[in-house]
Design a protein around this nucleic acid. Structure first.
Lengths: 172, 172
DNA sequence: TTGATTGCAAAGCATTTGCATGCTA
DNA sequence: TAGCATGCAAATGCTTTGCAATCAA
């Protein structure tokens, strides 16, 4: 994992460019938070990121994480995601395909998916209303495969197959 | 507007059925809140509803509005909507077509739209992941027609044509 | 040196909960 | 009468803000 550090030069450069453009300053905290964010392929809440950053440097504060995530979003490196519970999650934005989410209301599992047809139809609808879309979010709530099975036979089956999708246990 | 009161017998019956089924109790507050909700064809936050109900009976409390909105949602009369700011809005659910929203990030205007094709494709995607969808929400953010014009020529033009869509000014 | 940045503590919101009182069935 | 419902106040959880100290440019 530590070996990954060198991979994010492009993203880091982008961030530094943004910082310079805006007349802001490069700080160790911002660098650290960006690094931790980039190293984690997941939907992270501000708090998640805070704990991860804390492990590397106990000197970072919650507030700075909040502020830096906003910054990353403005810089185009992160994207805010609302999964349905109160908090705001962040996912990678730079060089990551746009996608939407299915959220299991039972276990919180998040499945990412993409449909070019849906995208196209959305633009069509927007055009119909002369609406200029900047971004969109489609969330499908329901039960994932595992939880459907679980609710059919109520055996408390042990952990079956490896989950094929990333799991967020922070929800619910 | 007061003449509309008699129109909602079906909805009221539905609510009373639900209340009875659940072993709950019919109260003046619940009736009033339901009535005010039904009389307003809009996206209402709990606070919006609270003020509207207050005008009719200063004895209703915020808490009861929150609790009753949950109840209405469970009874299938209301549906929760997240428009992107912090709060939760509610819209009619009973005998109302499902639809999605375009939200103008400039003025907060909300456009409702529906696309059977998008719906169908969503089900298709869900099936592909063996996901059992219960509901979904699609939100397109961007600029409405008026705000696009406004940002082209920066003349602070007065109020032009009548807005063709319902406007929520509570956002932003 | 100057002013942006940090982190703590406190404030802000929307929403929920504890609990004594009130009211429905 | 029994116990659900109400409404106030307090608590909660996430996020933002005020501000003095710190640090980058």
């Amino acid at each position: 994992m530590a070996a990954k550090k060198e991979e994010f030069e492009e993203e880091k450069a982008l961030f530094e460019d943004y910082i310079r453009q805006q007349g802001l300053r490069k700080t160790v905290q911002r660098e650290l938070i960006l690094e931790v964010f980039l190293m984690t392929e997941d939907h992270l809440s501000s708090e998640d990121l805070y704990w991860l950053a804390q492990k590397k440097d106990p000197n970072v504060g919650q507030t700075t994480v909040y502020r830096t995530l906003k910054l990353l979003t403005e810089a185009g490196l992160a994207r805010e995601v609302r999964l349905g519970d109160g908090r705001t999650y962040y996912e990678h934005h730079f060089e990551h395909e746009h996608h939407d989410h299915m959220v299991c209301t039972e276990c919180g599992r998040v499945i990412e998916f993409f449909s070019a047809e849906i995208e196209a139809l959305q633009d069509e609808m927007a055009a119909q209303y002369k609406f200029l879309p900047t971004h969109h979010s489609l969330r499908i709530l329901g039960l994932c495969e595992q939880c459907q099975e679980r609710s059919v036979d109520i055996k408390t089956a042990g952990s079956g197959a490896q989950p094929r999708v990333r799991v967020k246990t922070t929800i619910n």
